[in-house]
Amino acid sequence: MRGTNKVGIGVGFILIMVWCLLPVAWIISLSFKSQEAITAGSPGFLPTSGGSAGFQNYVDVLNDEQFRRAIFNSIGICLIATALSVILATLAAYAIARLEFKGKRFVLTTALAIAMFPVVSLVSPLFDMWRTLGIYDTWIGLIIPYMSFTLPLAIWTLSAFFREIPWEMEQAAQVDGATSWQAFRKVIVPLAAPGVFTAAILTFFFAWNDFVFGISLTSTEAARPIPAALSFFVGADPFNRPASLLAAGAVVSTIPIILIVLVFQRKIVAGLTSGAVKG
């Protein structure tokens, strides 16, 4: 019984690794196929000996002005949206976790509803509003919706963290004469920092992944983020979809995510699981 169990877990382990990494290996492999081989048709997992491009696709992709702009846009927009969203969420989550006030249920229900909101329904009114306000195809035009849609996740994650903070310390501070606000700022913020950090990573992931807003609220490289740029990506030859070039772009766009995952794996798992399920 024990033995089969161990074998089962070993097999499961291998299956999980294959599941997670095979498609990643595939896209990396594809990014090394040469453009000529792709046009001529080059089936199979690995590039053929004559059909390998080396790092040429990466050179091409990084030399592509549009792609560079898209990376710049994505990083800029996502970082700003993440920072602002986390600040607002921290304030809200503190209130939800610690204070009694009227309208708390409303806030929580709103957050839940927005997490379920079909973003495509917002495309037409937002486009109309943004063009009236003059923020269509600008960074701010994407930052605002990214913030709104990451707030629920950030609020949940953070309030879950806040509940596990030893509140006696805040009470002690309050007994010492600090106001609620001072107690919040001096005592809770440092303790909550890891939670804030987790919320920031999850928020960044969400914004980085967005596609619907990215294609519908931008129209040039002034604000177009990576997912939209990839879907519109054109190589030197517009009639041949540059599959291997796209793959190289895809790999480049995944590097930040993999770095974040490698460094903050523990925090992300904790954040994901505490935020959504609280038994």
């Binding site: 990643v24 980085w208 992944n209 596609f211 990576i226 997912p227 879907s231 895809a250 995944t254 995510i257």
Partner: peptide, 10 residues
Amino acid sequence: LIPYGIITVV
């Protein structure tokens, strides 16, 4: 976490 973090478009 890698599939989770990868862009859906990718």
